[in-house]
Design a protein around this nucleic acid. Structure first.
Lengths: 141, 141
DNA sequence: CGGTATCCATTTCGATACTG
DNA sequence: CAGTATCGAAATGGATACCG
């Protein structure tokens, strides 16, 4: 991401009633987490795997509209972050199971905090949704 | 986003001890929120504005490395979502202040939940960071 | 079954120049 | 000061074909 001058971690620490220690940090972990989750499928996969383990094609079917390539990439990303465990059973045909690691499961809580907020504030969000006036060149987000 | 078959909202509802009502929903609000925040700058801007109001160029300086264009776009996005208020003072030279709306401020809590998690689990995250083996074509995320 | 390789479309981001 | 316009680069995502 080429971390910006301003560090998210020190910011949230200062912005909150119960600031975090923040004694030492090199690459802001908050930024890292956001980078990891800020794609089209990661959070969806996490939540699905939070319900039960899945095999590759099960997951592929459960999520409608994802390509094999993106599912693989997403799983690899989550795996390399230590949130998802990939278990290969050397049978024929091969069978691969994906499940959350304990670390991954522990993320479900905070994730749901955000989700809850979105659901609770849906009316206000819907009410606020006006075009504002004009966008800054190139189409809407 | 062209919402996938699987709806994040019903999923988090089912995955949690305290499920949300989820009586009726068209465009999943959770997905909408994620779409809004899943860019390079939005969360950073939110957290900064959570500390104090900023004028445009103040903000520009506070965030190192953002272009004027992206700052404008980011602010417009948050504004049209009802999270940020844009106040124009018709002075000369012009002065524009940005601050969080109450709705925006209410988002700081859940946001910090995620940030706290990242900070608290930083050791585990760092420990888990291994290349896994190989990526699925095209460069690393 | 569970991928990988290739190619292509879209989106996002940033640098630069210019304006009321 | 606070933007807008334009352009190009890069990241991201998807379709298709193929493989152990």
């Amino acid at each position: 991401m080429s971390v910006p001058n301003t560090d998210v971690r020190s910011l949230v620490a200062a912005a909150l009633p119960t600031p975090v220690p923040a004694d030492e940090y090199d690459g802001c972990p908050v930024t890292g987490l956001l980078r990891l989750l800020s794609d089209k499928w990661s959070m969806l996969v996490l939540v699905l795997l939070g319900r039960q383990p899945y095999r590759f094609n099960e997951l592929h079917r459960a999520i409608g509209g994802i390509s094999q390539r993106m599912l693989t990439r997403t799983l690899r990303g989550l795996e390399s972050a230590g949130l998802v465990l990939r278990e290969v059973h050397p049978t024929v045909p091969p069978s691969v199971e994906y499940r959350l690691t304990p670390l991954g499961r522990s993320l479900l809580g905070p994730l749901s905090g955000l989700a809850d907020w979105a659901v609770r504030h849906e009316p206000e969000l819907a009410a606020a949704r006006r075009p504002v006036t004009a966008a800054t060149s190139s189409g809407p987000r």
